[in-house]
Simulated scan of single mutants.
Amino acid sequence: MQAISYWLKAYGESHQNPINQKIHKVAVPGIFLSVVGLIWSIPQLSLFGFSLNWVWVAAIPALVFYFWLSISVFILMLAYTLACIGFIWSMEILNWPVLPISMLLFGVLWIFQFVGHKIEGKKPSFFEDVQFLLIGPVWVFFKQ
């Protein structure tokens, strides 16, 4: 497993343009939120009378990855993940259409991401390594 400094440096290499950075500051956390909403929308798993939302199944491996990077990254991403889950849960309580909103957010924000990379002149990092999809939010939160 590579160190967090490696991941942040490697991710930052394709995110030098200030416009691309600004787009990422909004789009990356929004995409993370939309993915939580998409996974939340999958019908719950029922086992032995207990219902489990798939978002917890997806969050655990991601959080283990963050834990391996560093305790501070883990705490940061645990907090953000729980905030996203809380927000999506609130949307559901308010009877907002979680799935369509999440799909719209996901699509629009990815378009912005690709526009940012067109401006940057470099392809997105995840084309080289899919793990960069998990590094993006960390980079956004650590980037000043």
Rank of each mutant, 00 (worst) to 15 (best):
M1R: 07
Q2V: 01
I4M: 11
Y6N: 13
W7M: 08
L8N: 07
K9D: 13
K9A: 14
K9W: 05
A10Q: 13
G12H: 08
G12N: 10
S14P: 00
H15F: 09
I19L: 14
N20Y: 06
K22F: 12
I23F: 08
I23L: 10
H24I: 05
K25F: 10
K25N: 10
G30L: 12
G30M: 07
F32L: 12
S34M: 10
V36H: 00
I42R: 04
P43Q: 03
P43D: 04
L47V: 15
G49T: 07
G49K: 10
F50V: 15
S51W: 05
N53H: 12
V55I: 15
I60M: 09
F65C: 04
F67A: 11
F67C: 08
W68V: 11
W68A: 09
S70A: 13
L78S: 07
Y80K: 11
T81M: 14
A83K: 00
A83G: 11
I85E: 01
I88W: 02
S90F: 13
E92N: 15
I93K: 14
L94G: 08
L94W: 14
N95Q: 14
L105D: 02
F106Q: 01
F106N: 10
V108Y: 02
I111R: 01
F112R: 00
F112M: 15
F114P: 03
G116L: 10
G116R: 03
G116A: 11
I119M: 08
K122C: 05
K122F: 06
K123Y: 09
F126Q: 09
E128W: 06
F132V: 04
L133V: 05
I135A: 01
G136Q: 07
V138T: 10
F142L: 13
F142R: 15
